[in-house]
Design a protein around this nucleic acid. Sequence first.
DNA 1: GATGGTTGCTAAACCGGTTTGCTAAACCGG
DNA 2: CCGGTTTAGCAAACCGGTTTAGCAACCATC
Lengths: 374, 374
Amino acid sequence: MEERVSERVSDRSSDPPAPRARIADVAREAGVSKAAVSFAFNSPERLKPQTAERIRQVALTLGYRPHPVARMLTAGSTATLGILSPNPLAQAFANPFFALFAEGVSAVTEDRGFGLLFISPLHGSLERAMERATVDGVIVIGLDHHHPEVEAIRRTGVPTVLVDAPAWPEHGAIAVDDTAGALAAATHLLELGHRDLLVLTMEPSESQDVDAAGSEGGSVMSRRMRGYRLALEDYEVKLGAGSIRQAPATFEGGEAAFLRAWEDGLRPTGVLSMSDAAAAGVLQAARHLGLSVPNDLSIVGFDDLPLTRFTDPPLTTVHQPVRRKGEEAARMLLRALSPGSGRVGEHRVLETRLVVRRSTAPPRQPSQEVIGDG
Amino acid sequence: MEERVSERVSDRSSDPPAPRARIADVAREAGVSKAAVSFAFNSPERLKPQTAERIRQVALTLGYRPHPVARMLTAGSTATLGILSPNPLAQAFANPFFALFAEGVSAVTEDRGFGLLFISPLHGSLERAMERATVDGVIVIGLDHHHPEVEAIRRTGVPTVLVDAPAWPEHGAIAVDDTAGALAAATHLLELGHRDLLVLTMEPSESQDVDAAGSEGGSVMSRRMRGYRLALEDYEVKLGAGSIRQAPATFEGGEAAFLRAWEDGLRPTGVLSMSDAAAAGVLQAARHLGLSVPNDLSIVGFDDLPLTRFTDPPLTTVHQPVRRKGEEAARMLLRALSPGSGRVGEHRVLETRLVVRRSTAPPRQPSQEVIGDG
DNA sequence: GATGGTTGCTAAACCGGTTTGCTAAACCGG
DNA sequence: CCGGTTTAGCAAACCGGTTTAGCAACCATC
């Protein structure tokens, strides 16, 4: 056990936890009305200076602090933004992508004095979670297109910005050009001469309904898949059976997926991973299997997270401005919230680009199409 | 510009944003009292089945959703926990440690149906941030001992669990044995024969008041420093001038700090970093300078983040159960919140241990101080 | 000494729900 | 047909603040 407990429980259950002072208490104590107390804090100019001061003094000794919930109720706003994740938070945080995105969001919310509430399914239901969320607006990330509860979220009427999701006309949306990025990634491997590729999709691999819609429709996964496919068609290369695998966007996910593929007898020379996290896991798996990257195996990730610079070798990947995506989403949402601004259905697409580092190289012995592969 | 904008703003400022339906609206529409509407949702057994059904129907067509803030106000609780960071969130999220900790916290809050609010200084003031935070309790992480606002937080009377901070008797606390971990880290390097060490402290390096208190007092930094110092004394090794440097717990922070040290003429054979993030940065810097790790330079980190397994080479570091720390903190706080439990001042210390990977080795030419003990 | 304008504060309404009495009608057995 | 119990739903109080409307006292005018 990794644990040493020193349990000095100071069980002073004797002293009742001092019910917090309410505004009425302060008013009584100071011999004024509730309104006066409120003024003392919010509009001191409406009180004689010494009265205001006396009230503040009383409030201080009573440890009075206006109840934030009550204040929200009258204010009619919460000064809080939500980040909605369809996955359990514990899982979301396991992908560094999420933290980076949150970094972007928080940079602007913080600056504007907004709080940040993380919303995830409550007892499995996003709708229930939304119902309890005290936010002025919400940034939805990673929501899959055919998620059963999208409609429910929509109905709540909370101002929303959708990230990486098929856009709804009435809400803001921000995305990146996934298809172009994926196209560049696959083209890169194909140009190097790879013909045996393994594709690692992100979590919700739901069968292969994969090219659902146009390059802007569908899920992140389907857009990226589409990019891969376009490149493959260009080079007239076909994916082998079982060469599309699902790997949760985590280190472990990528590692496990690659090991399983290997056990199944697959011997790709190149891996296209839809997340850097999984790609890093593949790196790990390759090392474990004694494969040299990039000599025996080339790997291309997606996201360009900071960690790609530290992996061994540094990871070739598709850059997307994750942090800025968070910033823009937050800004867009705040803009939609600010009264008067008729700006609602703003849609924005940021660019992606391939970043070649050292996890990709020509295959050791160029696959000769038909005869075996290394 | 990395940006392509397709600004289809659907500026339909004509349709007023449909003021959300309130309970009174539903009541009127359904021809019942507000109470009945409330019952229809919360105590249907108090209504005739068909009445309840009718009310629910009306509510649905009106798109009624009980106002979460109003509900909180009467409920007297928010079902939300706060994570308080004294640093701007954007900065906190830049250290993977934080995400991992949040992962732990969210794992238990989620399970218990609690929301998670991230609290950071509002316009520079933690106190103001706390005043606006609608939470039932707060987990304080990374709060420095002499932070000017600790007292303010304390005064708010919000149930609190302190993580990695000098404990207050009336609040729960959870920490790890920083001193022992640091001692092990430094001893490891010294045993290998290193005599020229560089120490990288975390952010608030505030002068060198470093051995403030006993092994449990003071800040994280001072406790770890104390561990390093104990080892150094054991081996009768002194730190050279300028060998204690501050490096924010981020990749960039570590990289920059090491490069600066190098420019200043320091040529350590070993680096003790108080964070893995900074250690990874040093790895990067070393590569940049053409130094081979561990041959030319040994590096020991702190935290044992997942990424340490992917760095080149994998990082020797001090393990601490970061995720579990988050879990325990959340559990402890929830326990303190649950009524009746007199458990308040619970204090817990988790263990640390050295994990030797491949970023450490004997120095190339043992410092001649003693003529090797390699 | 009535008129009018400030100043300083209060009472009451309000935010949007929940909950606690309470009443009126329906139901029941005798 | 009566008294007692249930059932169904309502009015009002409440959560803890903010804000509006207005009152009383004070001062200056004319």
